[in-house]
């Protein structure tokens, strides 16, 4: 399978679209838009998994796709959106600061991800290599989002993006046992739940979800 064949092209299209949504997530100011973009990425992930299932003839990937659609495309974004709607209006926007450096950094991270992934996966099938390269880029962008945002909800969104990247990498590799995927997904889900609870607690204790508030409460500060 290679360039110009429909299986490859569609997989590439879906992966590229997911990467684009990662950029959109980085640039969004309003939490409502963040959750919307997160849902879109979840749906795209489900489509990518389903397409891989179709191409590889692997039925269990359709199950992965279903889980992704239900959890990533609908469930988690809806919960996040409700949490965001419960915030006071001033906190519903979470500006990432000056956009240009963040975006330039993001472009650099994508280049770095491609430069790492393409030589590292030499020997693997072409389809998997492209998926892994894009997945690594999505992972790094998620991490960048966690590093640049201060609001807890936006940081949770960054975490979920990272997990989307992981799943995309996993579905691209033919013959990856379902249990590995499910356990990865479950692990990240637990982390997300903890982060959600943490964000709630933060909001209740301090009246805001700005993680910078925590700095004052660290023990080792003189």
């Amino acid at each position: 399978m290679g360039l110009g064949e429909i299986g490859y092209d569609v997989a590439h299209l879906l992966g590229g679209a997911m990467l684009l949504v990662s950029f959109v997530l980085l640039a969004q100011r309003r939490l409502e838009a963040v959750t919307g973009a997160l849902a879109l990425q979840g749906v795209l992930l489900a489509l990518a998994a389903a397409w891989q299932g179709h191409v590889q003839g692997a039925g269990q990937l359709l199950l992965t796709a279903g889980i992704a659609l239900a959890a990533k495309g609908l469930g988690i974004p809806l919960v996040l959106r409700r949490m965001a709607a419960a915030l006071p209006p001033a906190q519903r926007a979470d500006a990432p600061g000056p956009l240009a450096p963040v975006m330039l950094g993001a472009a650099g991270l994508v280049a770095l991800a491609f430069l790492v992934a393409v030589p590292a996966t030499r020997g693997a099938p072409v389809l998997a290599r492209v998926d892994i390269a894009i997945a690594l880029a999505i992972l790094l962008l998620g991490a960048l989002m966690m590093a640049t945002r201060r609001g807890a909800l936006a940081q949770v969104a960054g975490l979920l993006t990272m997990e989307n990247g992981l799943i995309l990498a996993a579905v691209g590799v033919a013959g990856m046992p379902l249990v590995v995927e499910l356990s990865t997904a479950g692990l990240v889900l637990v982390v997300a739940v903890i982060a959600g609870v943490f964000a709630r607690q933060l909001g209740e204790r301090f009246g805001a979800q700005d993680t910078a508030l925590l700095d004052r409460h660290r023990g080792e500060r003189r």
Binding site: L3, A27, A107, I134
Partner: peptide, 22 residues
Amino acid sequence: LGAALLLALLAAALLFVSTGLA
């Protein structure tokens, strides 16, 4: 317009990767 530039750069990078692999 910066977003347009970013899109174009992303397009170029994705194309480089896929042509480099094929």
